[in-house]
């Protein structure tokens, strides 16, 4: 059954898959951060994903960034998120221009929003885990809404 993007259920499914592949994520190591995902469009959505040790233990949709203490937020238009996930689905991993780092580095296609540089640095400290997390969508049936 297709899962809508963007939705809480979408990220919960990735969290479930992360748990199912626990050995892979345990090898990548501890990951302790609260990441925001903002999907911008006519109706924008902001999700707070709590990564705790080896799992994504909580997924919530929040109204404002201040509702939860986010270390950093990845913000991009809905179309770009779709391009990224379609690239992952096509190749099993993102094409070079569609890794989280590449999208957010030069050109600011995906913006990294943060208040505290220490929170910002967590994006890089846990990069391999966060990339592996979004890569879990590679064979997910997605309904783009």
């Amino acid at each position: 059954m297709a899962i809508k993007f963007p939705s809480v259920e979408f990220f919960q499914e990735l969290a479930r898959r992360m748990e199912a592949k626990s050995a892979e994520f345990e090898k990548l190591g501890f990951c302790d951060t609260v990441m925001g995902v903002r999907v911008e469009g006519d109706t924008s959505h902001l999700y707070a994903l709590t990564f705790d040790v080896f799992e994504c233990s909580n997924v919530r949709e929040i109204s404002h960034a201040g509702d939860v203490e986010l270390d950093f937020t990845l913000a991009a238009p809905r179309a770009l998120w779709r391009e990224m996930f379609e690239s992952i689905q096509k190749h099993g991993q993102p094409e070079p221009g569609y890794t989280l780092n590449s999208l957010s580095h030069v050109g600011d296609r995906m913006e990294v929003v943060y208040d505290d540089p220490e929170g910002h640095d967590k994006f890089y400290r846990f990069m391999a885990t966060l990339q592996a997390f979004v890569d879990l969508a590679s064979d997910l049936e997605i309904e783009w809404v």
Binding site: P96, T99, N101, S102, H105, Y124, R125, F126, M127, A128
Partner: peptide, 18 residues
């Protein structure tokens, strides 16, 4: 990582940047 010629180098830089 952004300018890496292939996914091999991208993986390398994802790991070192952590």
């Amino acid at each position: 990582e952004f300018i890496s010629p292939t996914p091999v180098e991208q993986r390398m830089f994802q790991l070192v940047m952590q």
